[in-house]
Design a binder for these strands. Structure first.
Lengths: 201, 201
DNA sequence: CGCAAAGCATGACAGGTGTCATGCGCGGGA
DNA sequence: TCCCGCGCATGACACCTGTCATGCTTTGCG
């Protein structure tokens, strides 16, 4: 019997996944959580074989939760399960110690299959996504550019960013300009959008 | 036995919901589709009692599919089921003839309950969301402002918008300026973001 | 050590953006 | 019928943004 921990902030989706996985004779869902920071404490309590983590979650996101769980309980096999097949997510998931990566577009059997494979020690990754991830490469953004771009993503002005990040306006503009060049965008708003799509934020 | 049609572009979520709903003794999922334009043809074939439609779908979106289905088969009860509880979605869903509106944050029992209530002729709406919807009001954007804002959402420049929409740059700027005023934003990018969040796009 | 890369800053400049005043034509409601 | 609201357009203006050149530090690698 493979013991599963489910983490997803959407109760409906989480419950539905649990119902589906519980139908399999060799799987059993032993815990469900709605936030990233509940993953490690709950895992310690129930000692699952496999943890299925969504990326979008309040508190700690799925990738950070995966890293924390892998550090705390390396024997737990981790699958990242996400809506968006963004290239950056995959590489970050692998870096965080995940053993599998499944997008929510995939057919249900694929998830069940992934759980079994991962439990038996294999790694499971969508080949198409892996290729795209390698083609796009890792995020070329420096720490500062990342920080500035995240703050700019909500549409704030340069002056506001300078205030909240305690940098001069000129510096903000420099970092944004650099990020614009690296994303191939023409405005900071577009740069933020593109970086977001690639999973660089 | 309540016969259900499921429409959601994410195969994993769709399959999981089907598994969960099929567990209920009085419910049965008779069809699943992945795109909005498959809803009406499939409904004609299987004649469901209730249709559960996601908003985000390729082809026709869930709201447009709801309107088409309600026109073609008024006796089918429609529930819109969406990730985002955006105020504008609710009012548009109701205008499209939907009988229920459930967000994916809700507990699983609530969806099952909604199906039964809707099937028995009731309307099901999250009270908190209804209040927010009334407070925010309908979209104040004119048709042109809407069009321009949608085109601007991807971060294109004014000159590009003028080209694709066949309007002068000055006119584009006027519409954007008006939309900026109505959303309370300070830049067109932020205006697009805010309108998006409110379900005005 | 010396050099490269990154962070930070300044100043200057071209071009894009948001606002406003103004004008014209059209269609629907009082 | 008249007038208001909307779409569309122009032109002008202030301001913001993106780019570039330049320079100074700190950090880390060969």
């Amino acid at each position: 019997m493979i013991r599963l921990l489910l983490a997803d902030d959407q109760a409906l989706v989480r419950g539905a996944l649990a119902a589906m996985l519980d139908l399999e004779p060799d799987l059993t869902v032993v815990a469900q959580v709605a936030a990233g920071d509940e993953v490690v404490p709950t895992a310690r309590r129930v000692d699952p074989d496999v943890a299925l983590l969504d990326v979008q979650m309040p508190g700690l996101d799925g990738l950070a939760a995966a890293a924390a769980l892998h550090r705390a309980m390396p024997e737990v096999r981790i699958i990242i399960c996400t809506t968006f097949g963004r290239p950056g997510y995959l590489s970050r998931a692998m870096a965080a110690g995940a053993a599998g990566f499944v997008v929510k577009d995939a057919p249900p059997e694929q998830l069940v299959d992934a759980v079994r494979r991962v439990h038996s020690g294999l790694r499971v990754v969508d080949p198409a996504l892996a290729a795209e991830s390698l083609a796009t490469g890792p995020s070329p953004l420096t720490a500062r550019e990342h920080e500035v771009l995240v703050a700019a993503a909500t549409g704030r002005s340069v002056a506001e960013l300078a205030g909240t990040l305690h940098l001069s306006e000129g510096t903000i503009r420099n970092h944004l300009s650099s990020a614009i060049g690296k994303t191939g965008a023409r405005t900071s708003a577009a740069a933020a959008r593109i970086a977001e799509e690639r999973g660089w934020l």
